[in-house]
Design a protein around this nucleic acid. Structure first.
Ligand SMILES: [Mn+2]
Ligand SMILES: [Mn+2]
Ligand SMILES: [Zn+2]
Ligand SMILES: [Zn+2]
Lengths: 129, 129
DNA sequence: GTTGATTTTGAGAATGGTTCTTGGTTGAAG
DNA sequence: CTTCAACCAAGAACCATTCTCAAAATCAAC
């Protein structure tokens, strides 16, 4: 089954963007262009693209979900104090495959790996106390 | 600075539990016991315990946050279709440390690593179509 | 081209976990 | 006994996401 036109447009918008986008972001961007789309439709198709293994998604501590093309394998360091994030240049689990025993029939489509801790600045600030 | 009594109770409740708990869960459980606590206080202290590196947190696809003692190093396979999850017996990045260059002063406290894909049952169901 | 069934869509309402506001309580210091 | 700051709880507010359901688009005969 090929992708519907609407889903293509959504995926293109995601690929066009440098960074990850939230559902709201996508809705706002599409609203401007030649292929506007209702918010409900954006979320509907994001879920479908995820199930097809074409889009991945991670959740910010705020609860907001960010989407990206699945081929973009990025991970982050996030400060639990100030919330600042930096992106890792390489994926620490790239290639590290799970054994079939661990998978038990599960077919992996993507993964999220995020590190949480204290950034340099916030450590300094705590020291001061 | 030692932990406040309220924070201890919260941490104890988390440690007492077998699985991860949401903020709501914790509030409900504490409500029963000898140390009830308002919902706002639960969330306040969960954030503080996280910044102290004593508690970790991950987000379900639903957006709900689940908390656990930081020493509990668990990860999951989650089906993007039916939402079922299974727990991995070992952490694939345990020991795989980040280089100081990658960290750049960042002090890691915990990490989240979650795999998303299709469970056996949902793959079957898709085949049937 | 018409018709009726099926699928897709989107505006707005509903949901629900988390955070904010506010006013009260506690407890130590003076 | 005051004062003052820290802590706390109840409920309101917030807001991203999901749900509802009527309208629109698409499809499939005829
Ligand atoms: Mn990766
Ligand atoms: Mn781990
Ligand atoms: Zn920071
Ligand atoms: Zn499944």
């Amino acid at each position: 089954m090929p992708l519907a036109a609407r889903q293509e447009h959504l995926l293109n918008e995601l690929r066009r963007s440098n960074g990850e986008l939230s559902g709201q972001d996508l809705h706002a961007r599409l609203r401007q262009g030649p292929h506007p789309m209702g918010l409900a439709t954006v979320y509907r198709h994001l879920r479908q693209l995820q199930q097809l293994g074409l889009v991945r998604c991670r959740h910010l501590p705020s609860g907001e979900a960010l989407y990206a093309p699945v081929e973009r394998d990025e991970h982050h360091l996030t400060c639990v104090d100030c919330g600042s994030t930096t992106t890792l240049e390489s994926c620490p689990v790239h290639g590290a495959h799970l054994s079939p025993a661990q998978l038990g029939g599960f077919k992996p489509l993507f993964h999220t790996l995020e590190f949480f801790g204290l950034c340099d600045a916030c450590q300094q600030r705590q020291q001061a106390w």
